[in-house]
C-alpha cells in the first residue's frame, strides 16, 4: 500500500515509465491502482526513432507488471516522509495486513 499511496501523491506530475521491453514513455500521471497499474496522459515515447508505433497515441493504461522503472520528478518527492512511511510499514504490518 505504501507505493500506491505514494503514487497517488504524484498524480498530475510528469513521469517517465520505462517498461521491461525497454520502451520508455513520458506523460502526466493520471491515476494509479493497488497493482500499480498506471494511466498516463499526453504521452510521448522517449526514443521515437526506435519506437514509432505509438506516435498517434495520446494516453494509455500501463499494466503494473510490465513496468521496470518510473522516473520521478525529484522535487515532488518528500524523502523524509517516504522513509518514515517505509519504517512504519515494517513496524506494523498487521495494520494493513501483509500480502
Amino acid at each position: 500500500m505504501l507505493f500506491y499511496s505514494f503514487f497517488k501523491t504524484l498524480v498530475g506530475q510528469p513521469v517517465t515509465v520505462e517498461l521491461k521491453n525497454d520502451l520508455a514513455i513520458t506523460g502526466v500521471l493520471v491515476s494509479v491502482d493497488q497493482f500499480l497499474n498506471i494511466k498516463l496522459d499526453n504521452i510521448k515515447v522517449v526514443d521515437e526513432e526506435r519506437y514509432p508505433h505509438m506516435l498517434a497515441v495520446k494516453n494509455c493504461f500501463i499494466r503494473g507488471s510490465v513496468v521496470r522503472y518510473v522516473q520521478l520528478p525529484a522535487p515532488s518527492v518528500d524523502m523524509a516522509l517516504l522513509q518514515d512511511a517505509a519504517r512504519r510499514e515494517r513496524q506494523q504490518p498487521a495494520a494493513g495486513g501483509r500480502k
Binding site: F3, F6, K20, V77, L82, A86
Partner: peptide
C-alpha cells in the same frame, strides 16, 4: 534482472522490494 545494476540512496521499499532510490 537483465544485467542491470543500480547504486542509489534508498528512500522507501516494501515487501515486494519495490523501491524508491535517489
Amino acid at each position: 534482472r537483465g544485467d542491470r545494476e543500480l547504486r542509489g540512496r534508498l528512500h522507501a521499499y516494501d515487501g515486494h522490494l519495490n523501491m524508491v532510490l535517489g
